[in-house]
Design a binder for these strands. Structure first.
Lengths: 188, 188, 188, 188
DNA sequence: GATGAATGAGTGTTCATTCAT
DNA sequence: TATGAATGAACACTCATTCAT
């Protein structure tokens, strides 16, 4: 596999376990069975690794949302699809949900170069969809900026909670509960 | 003020700004205008300071929930009251909402000595209330363990989001939106 | 002794032996019988230690030259006195002559904060004295900027050469030879 | 050009700018537009590059001195000729004068394999010439070992000083001043 | 010979923690 | 209690060197 991806996967595993700050670059390298120095060929520094983890996930979602935009789907449905996709990703990679939940609000992330259209950009995508939804009367009059973010972070959080509550197997049904919760919570 | 409280407040301020791991004990001491050594009279170590921040907030909520238990209030109403109280606390101390949101899921917290009946204990309180609520048919048949945690963390998250979105002044109305969102989301 | 001086002396010893770049901060700390961390209480970084060594020597010479300025001494005599003083310093501390000779022309030194009136400032002091000397016809028409520097660096170099040629004991007579060499070299 | 020479020239440029210790082999390779690995085909290690720079210059001077030996020239004249040749070399390659002045007294150089008859050998050549000169009464009774070295290093130093004082164009006249300085300094 | 990705020992620097005052 | 200088283990990052291609 491409070395950079190898490092991303090992880093996700270790950071999920130890937390970003307590994670040693050496541990990541050990897990990836490469030398420390190699990490620094692909990443400027330790922060860069975390950035890349977020960036990768961010890109996937943005790509999906762009694809959905070109389709004629009701906005709430689009939100559901993105949530489902993201949820499925996190189910397949539980460590990722830990990292996103644990490190997703760290100041370090907000100082990242990709922040301009970064992870925080996804709440904005949700906001736009909620705006559309509001216009056609699907949902009631909520603060879409706030709820865009709430919905996004609640999604990550729920995936994380399922994991620490040992309910990985119920992912599918619990996800439906979550969607029902959200939709009922905002619909007119 | 009692030195220990002084340290807690300074620590909350600094940790909110820099994140726990990047925070230096020296910075906290500087902010509190005391010597580093003094911190170690009141706290076993750096982790102990974060513990104490969570513990303090936890105790307040447990105290309130115990008081509510002795009263004859519908369970959903109890949840609302606790959320409102917590929200009000976070509004008065925005740094606290940053700390709770940023560090509340860190492994470090889960390794803390007070964890047994700790911060994570609050979701359990919510769970019990949701169970009661479910029994009397106020809400539909949800996974109360999961939703106890979702509701609790969403509360903290929302307070944090209001702050970074610069909506401190709309705290009250946004809180009502959040409560409506949650109640609508779970009611039968 | 003051810790900072202790570090300066140990650093001079170790740098003379290993060269600045190959010198480990740990070695300096070991020699000074203190912890590495202590070095960083007194110095911003490793470069700062070298700066301080130069700065200290520079200040001594500037002080002497200021004292001489206030006296009614022929300029060539002033140069002799400064050279003699510096030479005597280097004889008492052979390691210092190694450091000044070896590191005195490194780019690192030229990037130092004290460079404005720094070590390179001493050649300028010599230049002024040569200018005076030229005016009164003591010496011939030389490029005083160039020879100010040549005389200064030759002084350091000679002290260094005496050391590596194992002639520390002949310091006094060799110094007189050097002075004669310089004076004969520039006089009218 | 032969790769080894290419590397020597690039190394001289980079070392003059950054100092030997701070110079990365990668930088030299970049400047020479070759791969790092290639450097290690022509040189055993990084020190070897510096050795070669000195060795090259040393060989030229030894060659010249051997040629001069076979001619019937007064010893002082020989010294002048060598100095002039060396000076001219340094004028054509200012980076070289920086390297020789900056690194010529480093312990690293004294640990080099070619040191036995190495760069430090040139002072010895000068010493022999001064001995001859002293015998025929051209110069006064000086410590020829010391002055052989002083004269040699002063030559390098002066070339270096001319460069940092921005007097490259005056090289010729300044050189004559230097020679006059030295000859007057040592003659009977 | 030439390459440059990979290596990993080595080092500057930080910072939680201690303890003599 | 309070102090803050001193400690030294720990860690991010570098870079000379190697070797499979």
């Amino acid at each position: 596999m491409r070395k950079k991806e190898l490092i991303r996967l090992s880093a996700t595993k270790i950071i999920a376990r130890d937390g970003f700050c307590k994670t040693k670059v050496q541990s990541i390298a050990d897990d990836a069975k490469i030398a420390v120095g190699t990490v620094y060929i692909y990443f400027k520094n330790k922060d860069g690794i975390l950035d890349y983890i977020f960036e990768t996930q961010h890109k996937k979602i943005v790509k999906l949302s762009e694809k959905l935009e070109s389709q004629n789907i009701p906005p709430l449905e689009k939100i559901k699809k993105i949530l489902r996709y993201h949820f499925e990703e996190l189910r397949k990679n539980p460590d990722l949900s830990s990292v996103l939940a644990q490190e997703g609000k760290m100041p370090v992330v907000y100082g990242s170069p990709w922040i301009k259209d970064g992870f925080v950009g996804i709440p904005y995508i949700f906001q736009k969809m909620l705006d559309e939804s509001k216009e056609i009367g699907e949902i009631r009059d909520i603060d879409t900026e706030l709820f865009g973010a709430i919905i996004f972070f609640t999604g990550i959080e729920t995936a994380y909670l399922l994991q620490i509550q040992g309910k990985q197997d119920k992912h599918y049904s619990e996800f439906n509960e979550l969607v029902t919760f959200i939709i009922n919570g905002i619909k007119s």
